[in-house]
Simulated assay, not measured.
Amino acid sequence: MPEVAPVEIFGALADESRWQILVRLGTEPASASTLATELPISRQAIAKHLKILTDAGLVTATRAGREIRYEAAGSELSRLARHLDTVARGWDRRLAGIKKAAERD
């Protein structure tokens, strides 16, 4: 699967329902039917959200008999965390520079 751009990943995470699904799948794999019983989201909406999360590389799907089990994709989440860490370090450097300049004046 090709690497998904961070902006696409953030787009997938911008929906509260998808965020709830991803957090739930971070604890253990589940089928769409199981998610529908645990979350206040219809089965049809869960399926649409799972497709978006899967396309963004945040969720993987594995067939287990007649059921498809979904789980959070740890490697993609780790890659996203590294991107965020890079942004945070840059922001911290800029703030330190502003503080240093302010203290000089």
Rank of each mutant, 00 (worst) to 15 (best):
P2Q: 13
P2M: 02
P2H: 11
P2A: 08
V4T: 11
A5P: 00
A5R: 12
A5D: 04
P6N: 03
V7D: 07
V7W: 06
I9A: 03
F10W: 08
F10T: 10
F10L: 13
F10A: 01
A14P: 00
A14W: 08
D15R: 06
D15F: 06
D15Y: 08
E16F: 09
S17I: 02
R18I: 04
R18F: 12
R18T: 11
W19M: 14
W19R: 15
I21R: 04
L22K: 09
L25N: 03
T27G: 11
T27E: 15
E28G: 10
A30P: 01
A30V: 09
S31T: 15
S31Y: 12
S31K: 12
S33C: 02
S33D: 12
T34H: 10
L35T: 02
L35I: 04
L35S: 01
T37E: 11
P40S: 14
P40V: 05
Q44S: 14
Q44H: 05
I46M: 10
A47V: 06
K48T: 07
H49R: 14
K51M: 15
K51R: 15
D55C: 07
A56G: 05
G57E: 01
G57C: 03
G57D: 00
V59T: 07
T60D: 01
T62Y: 03
T62A: 03
R63F: 00
R63Y: 00
A64F: 10
A64C: 04
G65P: 00
R66D: 08
R66Q: 11
E67Q: 05
E67W: 02
I68P: 01
R69L: 14
Y70K: 04
A72D: 01
A73G: 09
A73E: 10
S75V: 15
S75W: 11
S75Q: 09
E76H: 10
S78L: 12
S78I: 15
S78T: 07
R79K: 13
L80G: 01
L80D: 00
A81N: 09
R82D: 05
R82H: 09
H83F: 08
L84H: 03
D85R: 10
T86V: 11
T86I: 09
V87D: 06
A88V: 10
A88T: 15
A88M: 10
G90I: 00
W91V: 07
R93T: 08
L95R: 07
G97T: 05
G97D: 14
I98M: 14
K99P: 02
A101L: 13
A102P: 02
R104G: 07
D105E: 13
D105T: 09
D105R: 12
